[in-house]
Write a protein that binds this DNA or RNA. Sequence first.
DNA 1: ACGTGTGAACCGATTCACAGCA
DNA 2: TGCTGTGAATCGGTTCACACGT
Lengths: 213, 213
Amino acid sequence: MPRDSFAIPQETARRLSLYLRSLKRLEQQQGVASSREITRFLNISSEQFRKDLSYFGEFGRRGIGYDIEILKKEIGKILGTNVVWRIVLVGVGKLGFALLGYPGFLEFNLQIIAAFDNDKNKIGQVLSGVKILNTLRMREVIKKEAIKIAMLCVPVDAAQDMAGDLARCGIKAILNFAPVNLVLPKNVCVSNVDMASELEGLVFQLKRGFFNH
Amino acid sequence: MPRDSFAIPQETARRLSLYLRSLKRLEQQQGVASSREITRFLNISSEQFRKDLSYFGEFGRRGIGYDIEILKKEIGKILGTNVVWRIVLVGVGKLGFALLGYPGFLEFNLQIIAAFDNDKNKIGQVLSGVKILNTLRMREVIKKEAIKIAMLCVPVDAAQDMAGDLARCGIKAILNFAPVNLVLPKNVCVSNVDMASELEGLVFQLKRGFFNH
DNA sequence: ACGTGTGAACCGATTCACAGCA
DNA sequence: TGCTGTGAATCGGTTCACACGT
């Protein structure tokens, strides 16, 4: 049980949230589930699941399986979903607006506490229960509320500058929706969501006849 | 120059679109750029860039670098962006609406030609130049227009059923925005965009103090 | 000297094979 | 027997080191 704190594969971290989802689906059924049942609809092998968990401890019972309720709590603890994480959103265009109303964040106890925009017409509005503030107030709010995570939904030309501002405000992690690679101090963690590039990947695979079966 | 058609790393395909972007930025500057210049703002090593290209042929000149214009065309050919790819969108909620207006798709010559929804109030509307049609007409349109790619933006509970319908209509690739693993015939290629899970990944890294620098 | 192209070495992650417990 | 936990083997992809052309 190597709890040595570091050396958790990147991919393992990503998969943990999928396990949590799967467990929530099974929740009603019974008290115990096997690794096979948990990964059944996940495109992940049961060995992979067990290996992933082994980085954090032993949560199952040999010959039996996993107590769903307990495992759900444990993974929640590992991921940090047992606590509410407060985040901000920058850029309330169409995409930002969609994210403000996206119900999926609740699943991981993620809460958007404020949105920022430059547009005078938007400032002051409340969308999906979130107030839109002037970008000038970003520093003040992020500091005061000790926010560490931001979603960046501004146009591509503004993204790098705005990301720099966020870093200077104390933001430590950015989910970036602009199709550009952000250059930031390396103590700031960036994750990119790139819809166009993702679609392009599908085109590529189609073109290669990967799926002419 | 192993043009043996198969065995292109997944990641290589993904990076090609980033190279294309980088080249577009450099376009104005000069006729030639080195692998180092092209990858400068990409978080990708120049060796990686050269290795990636080597799967498809030799595009540079030793001692000199790459002709930007030519390389742009070549990568375009590889990715398929030299041709317009027509796609459909299913589910015009907030997210679907945002995607209809997303300018980033143009970059790769991707064109949304129709959107589908069940909501009688939305059917018939034209948003961002795209007409919203009754979901019942999906088969007809997809067959007639020979569409191969779909973006799926319906609520999570409807996603699996709708994806199955799409597959039966002849769709070969789906960009799925619902937080659920779609189970489909294996000649259908799925790519997932999972915003909540992505954010959760950032929380995890923050929690582990990866960035307490 | 400069910069590309690429086999070889390396590294991380997945899969395999099996020990251990119920 | 059934299912977990995990070292060992394997696989895929990245990095290194250097040959080659300009």
